[in-house]
Design a protein around this nucleic acid. Structure first.
Lengths: 134, 134
DNA sequence: TATCTGTATTATTATGACTAGTACATATAA
DNA sequence: TTATATGTACTAGTCATAATAATACAGATA
């Protein structure tokens, strides 16, 4: 979903945005930042590309990216220094990890729907195992 | 999510629509029809409420419901007889069951994201078991 | 015949995502 | 100091989709 690039001397990441997707661009962007934090591609206190430079890279309006950054700020995943730049917060990874655990809820919904559709427990579990060990 | 009612002598179902939801009304409606088929609340060849009567029940525009019905038609879950009414197709339940198995894909996505977030396999599996046996 | 049913069409409204343009204050480096 | 890059804020406009509104027509049935 993304590849590393080098930008102005700072190693960073290059999100792939699908403008045709039903998911809003700003949500896709947040998703990829979080993903790269988990992957270790983005470290604490590392500087993120500015709204303006990223908007050029992705051919996306700066406001769209600012919206994404504001949401990351709200979640304490990054912090901004006016005039200086935007950085990954200390503890960002653990915050993302905790947030991702909320995926257990949609997981439960899917399991209950699969059960209703007649899927067997062992079938679901083996699917989970297979995917996990991939 | 829904409760049984009796309408014009025909036992049917009464979908609960959340107009504030991000999910379109017509998708919510389809979801509940499918759910009630799986639950056995709607049988094969059973007549569905007409676009007009259902629109009154749900305080929703007839066109919105027609859109939902057309999609159910497309999936061969129901069929319509102009002038007569709309009915659940033979084999509808098995079609819905097959369709619901597509939920395995988002299930896999969630599992891989949970893995990335550091969740352990046994933790995921016990969550699945717990939900399944609920 | 009256009334129910599905079907089709056009127009309008509401909302959210996105874009466009501008402005201003702060931090940093030349 | 000055120039430039940064974040921030604001207003307006575009675009697509969902939903509504209103109407019309044809088939089935009591």
């Amino acid at each position: 979903m993304s590849e590393d690039i080098t930008l102005e001397g700072k190693t960073t990441f290059f999100p792939i945005i699908d403008k045709q997707s039903r998911n809003p661009i700003y949500e896709q962007f947040i998703e990829q930042v979080e993903r790269n934090i988990l992957l270790g591609n983005i470290q604490e206190n590392e500087q993120l590309p500015s709204v303006r430079s990223m908007s050029v890279l992705l051919s996306v309006n700066p406001n769209t990216l600012q919206k994404a950054y504001i949401e990351l700020e709200r979640q304490k995943i990054s912090y901004s220094v006016p005039g200086s730049g935007r950085f990954i917060a200390v503890g960002a990874k653990s915050i993302v990890m905790k947030e991702k655990l909320k995926l257990l809820e949609p997981l439960k919904v899917i399991v209950s729907e699969l059960k209703l559709a007649g899927a067997e427990l062992n079938f679901i579990i083996s699917t989970v195992k297979e995917e996990f060990n991939k």
